[in-house]
Design a protein around this nucleic acid. Sequence first.
DNA 1: TTGACAATAGACTGACCGGTCTATAGAGTG
DNA 2: CACTCTATAGACCGGTCAGTCTATTGTCAA
Lengths: 210, 210
Amino acid sequence: MATNSVNINPASTRERLIAAMVDALRTKGFHGVGLTELLLAAQAPKGVLYHHFPGGKSELAVAAIDAVISEITTGLGKLLQRHADPASALEAWMAFAQNKLAGSGFEQGCPLAAIALESTPEDGAIRAALANGFAAIRATLLQTLHSAGIEADRARNLSALIVSAYEGALVQARVAGSVEAMSDTAAALLDLVRMTLPKKTSLTVNPESL
Amino acid sequence: MATNSVNINPASTRERLIAAMVDALRTKGFHGVGLTELLLAAQAPKGVLYHHFPGGKSELAVAAIDAVISEITTGLGKLLQRHADPASALEAWMAFAQNKLAGSGFEQGCPLAAIALESTPEDGAIRAALANGFAAIRATLLQTLHSAGIEADRARNLSALIVSAYEGALVQARVAGSVEAMSDTAAALLDLVRMTLPKKTSLTVNPESL
DNA sequence: TTGACAATAGACTGACCGGTCTATAGAGTG
DNA sequence: CACTCTATAGACCGGTCAGTCTATTGTCAA
């Protein structure tokens, strides 16, 4: 095939399905959306879902998770290399998520956390995708923090905390209909990051500080 | 009535319903459980649910949220007064949740976060219960941290970060089937708390530090 | 004992669930 | 043109969903 036929729509059917699932996960969670609703949003009939994703709803969810993960890691990566200071990049990252949440009337949080908490150990593929995804995000952070002069163990702990704080802050802000808990979280987190980062000198050596 | 009739079961029907909902939220989320399954777990017929909770599943969920919140705040409160050092209390708190998660085969996380992410702005009562609950937990922490000598604004930020970290760490550990992300998170968090706490002296006055 | 009311019990309902199935259309290849 | 294979399309299915309804039981108060 390769030629994408008569697609007037902005994206291929497959991509529209994924986008609709991402959006659904963000707003209502995996079990919160029905297939009918999903297909309506994607402007696609039912058969096409099982054509592209023989595993059905779950397989689509995995694809959605993968898409979100790569979006996050590349976005975060860009932010990290655009800002000289990792702390500023983090600040921008938190602010971005915060604005997205508030700007959507506190509907759009993180698609990953929602499905993570609905999944059971039986949902192997979903959990694996999520676990790999979170690990990838942590790895992105770790690498940056480490090369900014933070010792490896400390950088790993800090990376885990950053991801935890991001997810947890979104949860709190979402239900409160207020950004406060998230901005408070970000403030404390950024304090820590800035404290942990070695003093800005022109040399890049790892000072093995405290 | 007051006399609780012929209840051989450990708790009243109402309490069993709430307990079953709490457990369900912990493991599969609000939309992940069916009423049939829930009632089976609570050993109760359907009519009794709508007798005690005319608002149905949602009203039961609100009651479950309230129950969890008071359990958390009292448990955390006890921990905080049992340990002289707030950081140690926090450490115990994180460890407790971590063990509960791991000990249940990574099924039992936090019931609050799950329903928080499935809820929409239309679920007013649920979101309100959650928002108040998270605020109460933060308030418990704030009060302790402040009276341990941390300046108010800083204590508020730190409290928000602690709750965020707790929730976010549970999410990551859950899907990974490993406690690592959570213990890493806890390590970084405790570092920060210990750094922020004023130097241990024998006097209890609030130094209005920094 | 009787009347009132809370609590228990489960049959029943209509809507919607995820998933299967068959039919058709379109595009590339011989 | 004919064949093939992907993609689109939606009717259809059994099962389950949350919620309603009526009946029964249990326990007080009069």
